[in-house]
Structure formats: C-alpha cells, structure tokens
Amino acid sequence: MILSRRTLLAALAASASGAPALAQQAPEAQLVPIELVEDSLALPSAVRLGHKHGDVIMIEYFDYNCPWCRRSAGDLPALLKAEPELTYVLVNFAVLGIPSVTAHKAALAYLQLHGPERYLDLHLALFRLRGTVDGERALKEAERLGGDRGRLEEAANGERTTQWMKDAFTLGNSLGFVATPSFLVATQSYVGGMTLAQKREAIAQARG
C-alpha cells in the first residue's frame, strides 16, 4: 500500500502532542458531495454500529495509532447509548506509518472472519493498548477474542485486505482527510478530533 507523504505528515502533525488543543474548538464543518458519503457507506470494510437505519449517519475514518482516535473510541459506547437513532460507521484508515498498516491489516482480517457484530470488541481492545499498535499486537488481541492465528494471518496478507485498505485510502484522500480522526455527519465533514459533546452537537445540527 502506497501512502501519500503529504497525507502521512499532515496526519502525524495533527495527532502529535499539540492535538489536545482541538478539545477547545470543534473542527470546521465542510460540505462534501453526497456521492462520497455514499461511497464511504459502500466500502466493504465499513463497520456499521448502532441503529441499522438511523436518522443520522456518522462515519469515522480512524487510525489505531492516533491519540484522538483513542479518545473517540473511548467515547463510542456512551455516544451509542445517548444517540439510539444514530448509525455509526467505522472506516479503517491507516495513515500513520507501517505499524498502523500492519495493525489495520490484522483488524480487517478479524472483520472478514468474524463479522461486524464482533468487531467492536476488537476495536475497543486495540485502543486500550498503550504504545505503538502494530500487526503483532493486533493479532494477539484478535487471538484473545477467539480468532485463529493462522487464518488471521492468511486473511491479513490476502488481496482482499490490501484492496480494502487501498479503497479506503483513496476515498479518504478524495474527501480531503489529511488527519485522523476525520468524520462525516450527513454531508458535512470534520477533519480532526471531536469531543463527545461536539459529536452530539454535529448530530443535532444534521437533524435540523
């Protein structure tokens, strides 16, 4: 998988130690074409959570080595509880270097083998890890949750996983997502971290 150097450096900068400043102000909303939202929902790797047919759809592009993505994952159970009519969609978006690429390959392998119903457990488990999350650590968590090591490795290194990652990366670039996490709420995009309260405000605005 070829990563855009511009995107990678921008994402690294956004996720550096200065990122908590985002807590003071939500990212600026930008209107995006509905076709790109639909393309995001059509990604085979997209994991739908919450309401199956929610009145608002929120899509998060994330990286397992992004500090703000970790905070977002920590807020996810509370968000789903507070917003029962929300459809929340996770998109694996490995932009923070080779460890992230290998971690996401392992995560997508688990998704292929065990389905979206069990994916959230792995998602939250990987964000509970401290330090760099790479393929080996992701595989260990997947094994702990019942995955078979051999089958996981085979799927992680398969063409389907590679294509899923390329498709997400291409679409993220088309959306202008130069940092993680980045969000789509209806047809508005938000590039950068958002607090739980900021997410709920964006959802309320989408409801009009």
Rank of each mutant, 00 (worst) to 15 (best):
P67C: 08
A82T: 03
G54L: 08
L111N: 01
T161E: 07
Q112S: 09
D148P: 06
T87D: 03
K105P: 00
E154P: 13
L120M: 15
E117T: 11
F62Q: 02
M165C: 03
R128L: 10
A142G: 13
R144M: 07
L80R: 12
K52D: 14
G115P: 05
H104N: 09
N92A: 15
F169D: 12
S100K: 03
L80I: 11
Y119V: 03
R151Q: 14
E153Q: 15
R130A: 12
A106I: 10
D167F: 07
D63N: 06
Q163A: 14
L113V: 03
L113G: 00
Y61N: 00
E117D: 14
L124A: 01
E143Q: 12
G115T: 05
G147N: 08
E85A: 15
A109Q: 01
A103E: 10
L171Y: 10
T132L: 08
Y61L: 07
D134F: 12
E141P: 07
H104G: 05
V91Y: 01
R130P: 10
Y119I: 06
G74L: 15
H123E: 10
L86N: 01
D148M: 09
L96A: 06
P67L: 10
A156Y: 03
P67S: 06
W164K: 01
N65V: 09
K140V: 14
R137Y: 07
K52I: 02
A78H: 15
L122R: 06
R144G: 04
F127Q: 03
E154V: 15
A46P: 00
E153S: 12
D39H: 11
C69N: 04
T87F: 11
E117C: 00
A106T: 08
K52T: 08
D55W: 11
